[in-house]
Design a protein around this nucleic acid. Structure first.
Lengths: 339, 339
DNA sequence: CTGAAAGCGCTTACAG
DNA sequence: CTGAAAGCGCTTACAG
């Protein structure tokens, strides 16, 4: 049962304006829409009246009549990961600049909550939806939303199959870059730290293996230590890595967050990354520039990813039958102190 | 000019259901609302039809008729600061659990953008608004929103005067706690790092001074190094502090973010906080538990602050003429490695 | 227990 | 250039 809360007591409507300006409400509507069908003089009178009466446009009513919407839903899987917060900042900025208003929902990786919020956004008449799917999201989610007739863009985590608009980064080549950097610097035993499950992990692991292979280093499963993709996970995984392989001196992390956890674990043992231990992150969140030590990582421009997602969605709203687009950001190595 | 995007082609309405189920649309509306005025048998027939036709409730239309809204706006000043991201997570969770849908807008500390999004939320018929005011927000903002008849709760940063619902933390006593901890550990020359302007800074500085005074330590303006309240700012301010006062060995930071920057700056000079230098943060964001080293700080439970704000807002929506409420979270020292 | 009617605030052909 | 009328999809008295 949805909550029921009354809005403002008694609204001023275009009818009130019409009476005050002594015109019909059609005329009022027209001038409010900036139509040039109305004589300037009349239009001015109407605007005066609107102002004086404290009129506020009821977009709901207009949209009901028109069958339009200027609301876009964006659903985020993990807002506590600064990477996704940055993506959100980017997409929100672009969307509101384009005149939309954004419904935001945080799923916290729960697919059932995701289902709930998606349904709510549908009922609210969202003109489009951008989503970072929760872990374990079924590929049918895309078809479902599309069957609702709502333009959709999926971000960051691609789903199994199907064609749909997508904005994310090239995980494989990104991690490959990071791993190669370590290899170039003479490392041959390189740990992989963090990440739990999902396509993004698969892709990043793939990049790690590819770099190894290109350098004729055999992939060793014992060097990969998975964990929740957050600081705590990175801390645990790194501790485990260090316990198991005391002589290891290099690792690439699933993402910056796990790398921060790694930095913390390293620090506990008196190891300063960049000096005896080489550590690479992935994402280049803002925090990476001022961690201790500053993190070498691969930049995927999180907020720009969000902006690209917005652009894709906006394009599809404009032209519903456009071919599916796929934007894959090009990762770029950024070297700081940790490696 | 707002964008115009048509929603789904041809909607299934209650009239279609009515025809299919051979009842009137009033009856359909009633069963959809779960009224017990309708015979079970009829209700079932209606629900069957709705299902078969793929009906989706048009909340917009219903709300227009009823004059209600289940949308709440939340506007955030700085989403790139994990503190506010955590606040957002808390308030969003509570609000959607209560059956609302949230409009989110990021002002990035711009009061003009804040004005824009506030207006948009009004037009969208927000049932309530929660806001972390952008720096420099005029106290009249509260009156404006209230004059719109929209329930409002302000979060984190209180405004000059006026009575309004507020949820934030006790900045003064929090920083006082942090400073006292340093004093108890024998420090007498304690730097204050970070923060730029605004009431929150005033309050925190006040706490710092109060602790000093209670210990008969004279406040020394030369020990405060202000900066943007982010990592970079903390890094700069700390570097400046270290340059100016090479022998300083303790500092309390404006917030965790500046403390992280400080950790980074300290690290650059080979100083490990907690060992020769005592550093305190403020907020206890998630990241504080796994920084390098883990940060001693004062916990204000960011996400709970968000939840409290939601509770206040929900209460006011229920009872518009409630007396203004003010929730001040009690800060709690959490000691880790940095001090 | 159910239906006919009015109305929420707007827009949009259609006349004139 | 402006007005009268219908209608977007729903809810809510009011009858019966």
């Amino acid at each position: 049962m949805p909550p029921k809360s009354t809005t403002s007591p008694r609204q001023v409507t275009i009818l009130d304006i019409a009476r005050a300006a002594e015109v019909s409400k059609s005329t009022v509507s027209l001038v409010l829409q900036g139509s040039d069908l109305i004589r300037t003089e009349t239009a001015d009178r109407v605007r005066q009246a609107a102002l004086k009466l404290g009129y506020v446009y009821n977009r709901q009513a207009a949209e009901l009549r028109r069958g339009t919407s200027n609301r876009i839903g964006v659903v985020i899987n993990d807002l506590l990961n600064p990477f996704f917060a940055e993506v959100l900042v980017g997409i929100e900025r672009k969307l509101v600049d384009a005149g939309y208003v954004v419904f935001m929902a945080h799923t916290n990786e729960s697919v059932s909550r995701q289902q709930t919020v998606l349904t709510a956004m549908r009922e609210q008449g969202a003109a489009g939806i951008a989503i970072c799917p929760a872990l374990g999201t079924d590929a049918t989610m895309v078809k479902t939303v599309e069957s609702w007739g709502i333009p959709l863009v999926v971000m960051i985590r691609s789903l199994e199959e199907g064609t749909y608009d997508f904005a994310g980064s090239d995980n494989e080549s990104g991690v490959r870059l990071a791993t190669e950097h370590l290899i170039v610097n003479g490392h041959r035993r390189i740990g992989f730290v963090g990440g739990e499950t999902g396509i993004v992990l698969d892709q990043r692991l793939q990049g790690y293996k590819a770099a190894l292979k290109a350098a004729s280093i055999e992939f060793d499963e014992k060097l990969v230590f998975l964990s929740r993709p957050n600081r705590e996970g990175g801390h645990k995984a790194t501790s485990a890595l260090l316990d198991a392989l005391p002589k290891i001196a290099a690792a690439v992390c699933y993402n910056d967050l796990t790398a921060f956890g790694a930095l913390s674990a390293l620090g506990e043992r008196g190891i300063h990354a960049g000096d005896g231990f080489a550590l690479m992150g992935f994402d280049n969140v803002l925090a990476a520039a001022h961690s201790n030590p500053p993190l070498s990582t691969v930049d995927v421009s999180p907020s720009e990813l969000g902006e690209h997602a917005a652009a894709l969605l906006l394009a599809r709203i404009q032209q519903p039958d456009l071919a599916a687009q796929r934007f894959l950001g090009k990762p770029r190595l950024v070297l700081r102190q940790s490696a």
